[in-house]
Amino acid sequence: MKPPSFDYVRPRSLSEALGILAARGDGARLLAGGQSLMPALNMRLLSPELVVDIGGLDDLRGIVERDGLVRIGALTRHVDLQRSAIVVRHVPLLAVAIDHVAHPAIRNRGTIGGSIAFADPAAELPACAVALQARMIVAGMAGTRIVPADEFFLGIYETALGPDEILVALEFDAVGPDQRSAFAELARRRGDYALVGLAAHARVDADRLDEVRLVYFSIGPTPVRARTAEALLTGRPLTRDTVTAAQAALAADLDPPADTQASSAARRQMARVLLARVVMELLDPVPIGAGG
């Protein structure tokens, strides 16, 4: 199981990388951390003519917070997110979710940009980005554009990125004092892709939630917002009945796929369970690091 033959280039600057993409187009694949691309190459699921290793573009690394905005470079590794005090304080959803992403050796190489751009429907970070309404900073030869997370994920492994564009960073609003996030997933084994996962974010006022965003993953071709359930949970005191109604509403919001790991019906049941768990968590959060 050896990769097919390909050419390799390691540009020294973003503009050089964009120039290569513009020249080579569809035949080129970007290599960041490689934790998704390399298995696909080894299995010969992909056979690019050219691999463009953007690992040398140091400007694409790092986490900065300024004026209530947190900017995370695309090449920032999972392990860097895990260790970042900025992330824990201002984007705690990422800090919780990242612990569920694969295993330490993978987190030492895998990057946030790679995970977002690869757009695996079972991955945690795309759902977090949608829940938090992240803005994707996308560079192309013509300049930089900003794509809202809600418009970024188009299908399985399919995003709004053009073939000659590079995701350079993600921008998040730092969470306000009245905002909370919650995260839960069900995976067969620690580090596995979830059978179902849920990233949630809301404004919390005592027992009321507003601006609720429930984003499921591993339950459709992209991260999936449960809009009906969100509406039912918004703006009213949360009771057992409200939660039950929101759970029932998931039938309209979700159409989960079946695969070798779980049936569609099992995923729906699990989605209902996760909804109750994240609502509890939103109302009564467990400090980061205290939970599993």
């Binding site: 049936s263 019906a265 099992a266 049941q269």
Partner: peptide, 15 residues
Amino acid sequence: LTPDRVLAALGKLDA
């Protein structure tokens, strides 16, 4: 004993 099979045994899977 997958979650699916346990849930099915418990009657927790929608038709």
